[in-house]
Write a protein that binds this DNA or RNA. Structure first.
Length: 274
DNA sequence: CCAATTGTTATTTA
DNA sequence: ATAAATAACAATTG
């Protein structure tokens, strides 16, 4: 599920445990979830540590603990964070639990494309600090976008928008939303955009990130209802999964096809190839 | 049995 | 050698 806003939504759930000590860590080492973590060390160092705070960047989360301990979580395709009451017993697909006196912090992930990382030290680890500058930051400039599109000039713009090294946090639905707003056909080659189109793309990236966070947008499906209840019908988001869905602006039917290796939804009346 | 799924990475192809 | 396209990962649902 998780793109930018959903990651922030799930991080905020675990914020219930800020300021509280971890009394035990429950996990099954050897699961794919821990392919990038030293679980023995993680358990030893986090048991007894206090969860001090957390933040998100792109699709990743960082949890800071006392004693210079850092926990990273990526939700992959199907990951979620939950808070459960004391005494909770792990269910199927619950891979990682931080036990606190008043609550259990649970990471669940059926497909296990997500994962856990662990690091120690006075500063956040490199896998965190080298995440690309946020789309809403000042470092995300038109010039940087233009240069990146040139470098990836032979790839469809839809595929390029999914590249985290320049568009951190953008996922499948957000990429489609950006292209729809910028009136760009998803199969256009990245290098073919003129300067006005690049400016539109840059502007809509920022707009969609801001809106996604404001509305707490999720990808639909069996998700917490509070996640996507407030998306306005003026967004493509509310129409892209409906059979027979129509473009909110042209009222014409939407199209769907695999572009850049992913299911893509666009409005042919609004987004033209030539 | 078929196809689909919000992400990323390894492998293959051009 | 570089970059783009594809396969793979795992589990579930329709």
């Amino acid at each position: 599920m998780p793109e930018l806003a959903e990651v922030e939504f799930f991080r905020n759930r675990w914020a219930a445990g800020h300021g509280a000590k971890v009394t035990a860590v429950r996990l099954h080492a050897g699961k794919k979830t821990f392919r990038d973590a030293n679980t023995a060390r993680l358990k030893r160092r986090l048991a007894g540590a206090t969860l001090l705070g957390s933040e998100t960047a792109a699709k990743q989360m960082l949890f800071r603990f006392s004693g210079d301990n850092w926990l990273g979580i990526h939700l992959g395709m199907s990951g979620e964070l939950r808070v459960e009451p004391p005494g909770y017993v792990a269910a199927r697909h619950d891979h990682f639990i931080l036990v606190q006196k008043k609550r259990h912090l649970v990471f669940t992930d059926p497909r296990m494309f997500g994962g856990v990382r662990f690091a120690t030290g006075p500063q956040p680890p490199a896998w965190w600090t080298r995440i690309a500058p946020a789309i809403r930051s000042r470092a995300f400039t038109v010039e940087a976008v233009a240069a990146f599109l040139q470098r990836r000039g032979r790839a469809p713009i839809k595929a390029v928008l999914l590249m985290q090294e320049r568009f951190p946090g953008i996922g499948n639905w957000m990429a489609d939303e950006v292209l729809w707003r910028a009136a760009l056909h998803p199969a256009r080659l990245a290098g073919s955009l003129d300067p006005a189109e690049v400016r539109a793309l840059h502007r809509e990236c920022r707009f969609v990130c801001r809106g996604a966070l404001k509305y707490n947008a999720g990808a639909g499906g069996p998700l917490p209802p509070e996640l996507n209840a407030f998306m306005p019908d003026s967004w493509l988001f509310n129409h892209r999964w409906e059979p027979g869905g129509r473009c909110p602006r042209t009222k014409k039917p939407l199209a769907r096809a695999t572009i850049g290796g992913r299911t893509t939804c666009w409005s042919p009346a609004r987004q033209k190839l030539f």
